[in-house]
């Protein structure tokens, strides 16, 4: 078992960021290396850039705690749990924490290592006010541009 944690501070309100993170079907719009994903009930299938489909079980999608959790269910994992927390910092910014626990341990790095890029992409979209994930949830880019410039929503 190994555990990996990546985090990033985003200059956007937690409620706005959660609108993206809490939508499991648009993960590919902010997670580099994914080409698509589908959701059917609590089953999500993500399609990796290498062409590999990877089924996941959605465990938690809690908009009150702003916590999203899922498990990868392919056999190479004896265990997997990913947790994305969006934590309000009460200054119109938030901390997004992406944790990966996996057995075999090395898979935490193979899969979880990519979460660094995902968090960076999420911040880029919010702080530029432009991006496919924002478009998908209907976040107004002008509002977020003002966030990026230090304004409030």
């Amino acid at each position: 078992m190994a555990t990996l944690r990546r985090e990033i501070r985003i200059h956007a309100p937690a409620s706005e960021v959660w609108k993206v993170v809490g939508r499991p079907e648009i993960l590919h719009l902010w997670f580099p290396g994914l080409t698509n994903c589908t959701v059917d009930g609590n089953v999500r299938i993500i399609f990796l850039g290498s062409g590999m489909p990877m089924p996941e079980e959605i465990i938690t999608n809690d908009s009150l705690q702003r916590r999203f959790q899922y498990r990868i269910t392919v056999p190479i994992f004896k265990f997997h749990l990913a947790t994305v927390d969006v934590i309000d910092l009460f200054d119109d910014t938030c901390l997004v924490v992406y944790s990966t626990e996996a057995d075999p341990g090395v898979m935490a790095l193979v899969i979880g290592g990519a979460t660094t890029g995902a968090l960076e992409e999420l911040r880029k979209q919010f702080e530029s006010g432009v991006g496919p994930a924002l478009d998908a949830v209907g976040i107004n880019s002008n509002i977020n541009s003002s966030v990026a410039a230090g304004g409030t929503v």
């Binding site: 580099p32 290396g33 990796l48 850039g49 290498s50 990877m54 990519a114």
Partner: peptide
């Protein structure tokens, strides 16, 4: 080399 997401240029070029 371990690149399931197909993120790295050298792996992509080879593929």
């Amino acid at each position: 080399f371990l690149d399931p997401f197909g993120k790295f240029t050298e792996n992509v070029l080879a593929v």
